[in-house]
């Protein structure tokens, strides 16, 4: 049986976008920490997933929480893919890509991630400091949970938040990835 060629798929994605039918576009990105999946809506980057996450599960989650109108459209993600490449090469310090915060929810969790996005390249903070900035000093455990479920890691740099005692703390993508990113940025 004939198979569908890549050109046909690309034209479908272009046409879907032109007709306002493409709610989520995604692409795969090869990086030194492995195969990443990055997804964006018309508002901006909405999700980045680690190699440790199952791609089919990530897409299912996006279909349920955002919209099932999801297509692989690498051309749509050219800009953020280039930024990620430059970041992993050590050339890019601040991501310029627009973000879609829909998946971060509201309230405390959103506050934590917003403040995390402001931690500069090469710098670090602590769960307690983030909790304090979000308005509840005692909620450092909740802060850790919020960071652990960061839908846009690397770009929203939750790897820059460490345990208060000086330990690395936790990381959704695995501690070795966290360590690697901090080394890359010269923070360790």
């Amino acid at each position: 049986m004939t198979s569908v060629n890549a050109d046909l798929l690309e034209r479908l994605a272009q046409r879907a976008e032109a007709e306002g039918l493409l709610d989520v576009a995604y692409a795969e990105v090869d990086s030194p920490i492995g195969h990443l999946l990055v997804a964006s809506t018309p508002k901006g980057v909405v999700r980045l997933s680690f190699p440790s996450e199952d791609e089919a599960d990530v897409l299912d989650e996006l279909a349920t929480r955002l919209s099932p109108r999801i297509l692989e459209a690498p051309a749509k993600l050219d800009a953020v893919r280039r930024e990620l490449d430059e970041y992993f090469e050590g050339h890019l310090k601040n991501f310029k890509a627009k973000l879609d915060w829909t998946l971060t929810g509201q309230g405390f969790r959103h506050e934590i991630l917003k403040h995390t996005a402001k931690i500069p390249y090469g710098g670090t903070s602590t769960y307690m400091e983030m909790a304090t900035k979000a308005g509840n000093r005692k909620a450092y455990r909740a802060a850790g949970n919020a960071l652990g479920s960061n839908p846009i890691p690397v770009i929203v740099p939750c790897h820059r938040v460490l345990a208060t005692g000086g330990g690395l703390g936790g990381y959704g993508g695995g501690l070795e990835v966290k360590e690697r990113l901090l080394h890359l940025e010269g923070a360790l």
Partner: peptide
């Protein structure tokens, strides 16, 4: 509903085969 890309991957080739047989290669893509 599953992500649309999965739907395209699952059924795209069969639909293309059907269209090639019914309208010919030239019009099948459109």
């Amino acid at each position: 509903m599953p992500p649309f890309q999965r739907f395209v991957d699952d059924h795209g080739p069969a639909v293309h085969g059907f269209l090639v047989a019914s309208v010919g290669q030239h019009d099948a893509d459109d």
